[in-house]
């Protein structure tokens, strides 16, 4: 039981780290501001979610758990607001997103 919990905690923490690094990598790789926001969104939701869930599992249920869940709740409630404020400010400032051409076929 103890072992199973540890394995699950490891998986969650490492998964969270993976998504965080991927999100940061996308921040560098993607072509324009509008697409980079998507990449930052992965870090805010899945990256933070998995990592903090792993820490929760590792710490067992104490007051620490409550604090971790509160951090997660704050991130989940504030990140869309910040993201929307940023996108709205960019759009109002007249920055045009780079869009896919219609004849290109686009995704996969």
């Amino acid at each position: 039981m103890e072992l199973l919990r540890d394995i699950l905690a490891w998986g969650l923490v490492l998964g969270g780290c993976f998504f965080t690094v991927v999100g940061a990598f996308g921040l560098v790789r993607l072509p324009d501001v509008y697409t980079r926001i998507h990449s930052a969104g992965i870090v805010d939701t899945v990256g933070a979610g998995l990592l903090l869930a792993g820490l929760t599992l590792y710490g067992g249920f104490t007051i620490v758990t409550v604090k971790l869940l509160l951090i997660l709740a704050f991130i989940f409630f504030t990140s869309p607001a910040a993201c929307n404020a940023l996108a709205n400010a960019m759009y109002s400032a007249g920055i045009k997103p780079v869009l896919a051409k219609d004849d290109e076929g686009g995704g996969s």
Binding site: H38, G41, V46, F76, S79, P80, N84, A87
Partner: peptide, 9 residues
């Protein structure tokens, strides 16, 4: 916005 891949402008 919370769903990666789409966000509200």
């Amino acid at each position: 916005t919370l769903t990666p891949g789409t966000y509200t402008i």
